[in-house]
Design a protein around this nucleic acid. Structure first.
Lengths: 342, 342
DNA sequence: CTGTTAGCGCCTTCAG
DNA sequence: CTGAAGGCGCTAACAG
């Protein structure tokens, strides 16, 4: 059982107010008393209860990280995980802690139901909120706007909506279009595009835009998931390589690419020589750890996380206003996996 | 601003005691009043503040997940991540929440310093603790024993120490030895062993034990890390294949194996035909998603997490005692990546 | 510089 | 069945 402020006060021969002052670094206490209190603090290994303190201050020193897991948890996506690492890197060094909110909401019933974070905000369990990803169907925006309007500190990763709040993002559509442009300019006309299923609406849009913009281009989309069936994947690749005569591909995930590579090798095809590849890396230099090295867009997920966490923290400690929106343009890293076609 | 119990009481025309009763499902309240209170509850979207409640009950409804990150965070190891997912699966469906404690302690200064969770326990920020991995140097055991002795609910993943507390684990040494036995019995005498560096003492032990037990056997250990340099890895593989004439390998991680595979393919070697492979999978069926499919020990990390979380929860809700130790023996899954040698 | 005191929001006896 | 009242541990205002 942990000692209370009264025990400490008694042992130090002072009042609880003085103990409180010492604990909170409030100046204006005579040195001799400070020493006595410190001794007692040490003696009891005293830690102020969050409840008593919270009741008075109204804060919990806790930051919620919310992920609306549509289909897969935040622990499945390499991207979210990197964001989370970034957030953790920053928060860990602060006086705040991370409260995980991994919500398993099915798309159907989410219509009216309130997202979990609302409850936490009301209970004052969290002082601030980070949303790892804004679902594209907009189902979170209502609830989020409500608490943001209420001046609750919120940071999110994703495109900005509304006026207030903090957000950071990397524009997926933009760098995917850029990847297509690169391949087109190197002479590729039949491109395979293997994105993750979760964004399929956006992907269709990318395809149409690209095919209109670049004459003679054909983009073959296949939605993938992190646990795609390998036989299925092989069938698709065979079809694409042999029927569609695809000469290049854009893959959204390096782990998927590893599978693609092993399939291609059974078909006697080599990345770089027989087919050009552009991928996306969320961890710096990941694409250089493949053989051959892979051209990648580096989406600095770690930085996204660190940035939004820093902003939120600054906001919480009153250092900055809460009207911030930052966009990161992923850098293209050339490593020789894209060849020119005559 | 969230309403307090007083607001609700006023609106419902009852005392705060009655509101409290309704909120906590305490029976013995007249139906008409229950209805009135419920209406008011709804009206204000009332949620009891954790502070007031916690002050009285002494509980936070929070479970801490602690990971002493020696070199890598819990977000880097596939194994820990799976454990975390398992924990989350269970906790998410309960009334508890997860508080993440990812401690960045360097080995050196950890001598006397108290691990972070102590503070959280004293502050009553957590009602229970799960330790994701017990470091092999024993630096956590003292602090852990202390709170366990104090009857604080603790569950950990790792071999049991002390009398009290709950733990679950899969015996690494045991299944690694078993893998070596399998290869030996299929005629392999030169085996490459590519474990993760973090356990290098244990790995040396495995090597010596195996070489003593199985005459004529040679185990070539190379410690690896998740971000191993691919050129370095190629050099090692070349040496092992060409100088040591290795015919089989045990790899601790499927992602590493993917790299190994791509290197081998540049050497014209194929897994299964030219070299036998046994790997470890933490996600069920992961090894079947490689091409060729890989023989694996399935270490049910998800289950480890789910099990320890369930135990802790049962303990917290008073369903069970806290003297539990469960060992999981990883299952060997044959998929044809190991060939017999005459 | 320091002690006294009034709550913060809630649950839980204890009377009625 | 219900309300009044005490107290959980702490901070902050106030009075000395």
């Amino acid at each position: 059982m942990n000692a209370s402020i009264h025990d400490v006060a008694k042992r130090a021969g002072v009042s609880i107010a003085t103990v409180s002052r010492v604990v909170n670094n409030s100046a204006g206490v005579k040195e001799s008393k400070v020493a006595a209190v410190k001794e007692a603090l040490e003696y009891y290994d005293y830690q102020p209860s969050q409840f008593g303190r919270g009741l008075v201050t109204g804060t919990s020193k806790m930051i919620g990280v919310y992920s609306p897991l549509a289909g897969g948890s935040m622990f499945e996506s390499g991207y979210m995980l990197e964001c989370l690492r970034g957030i953790d890197n920053i928060i860990r060094e602060s006086s705040y802690s991370l409260l995980l909110m991994n919500e398993s909401v099915s798309y159907e019933k989410s219509e009216k139901a309130k997202p979990k974070f609302i409850e936490y905000v009301n209970q004052k369990k969290i002082d601030g909120l980070i949303v790892l990803t804004i679902p594209s169907d907009g189902r979170l925006e209502g609830a989020l706007s409500a608490i943001i309007e209420d001046d609750f500190p919120v940071g999110y990763i994703g495109k900005r909506f509304g006026e207030k709040g903090m957000n950071v993002y990397a524009s997926y559509e933009e760098y995917m279009m850029d990847g297509i442009r690169r391949l087109y300019e190197k002479g590729h006309r039949e491109i395979a595009f293997l994105p993750m299923k979760s964004r399929s609406a956006t992907n269709q849009k990318i395809k149409s835009k690209a095919e209109i913009k670049y004459s003679g281009l054909k983009v073959n989309i296949t939605d993938t998931t992190s646990d795609i069936d390998i036989e299925f994947l092989r069938d698709i690749l065979e079809y694409m390589m042999e029927e569609e005569l695809v000469t290049a591909m854009i893959v959204e995930d390096l782990r998927l690419l590893a599978k693609v590579q092993s399939i291609l090798s059974t078909m006697g095809k080599q990345i770089g020589n027989d087919i050009s590849v552009i991928c996306v890396e969320h961890v710096k230099n990941e694409g250089a750890k493949m053989l051959p090295k892979i051209d990648c867009y580096y989406v600095p997920a770690l930085q996204l996380g660190e940035t939004i966490a820093t902003e939120l923290l600054d906001n919480l400690t009153g250092k900055k206003t809460k009207e911030i929106s930052k966009r990161f343009m992923p850098e293209y890293i050339e490593r020789g996996s894209v060849k020119e076609i005559e």
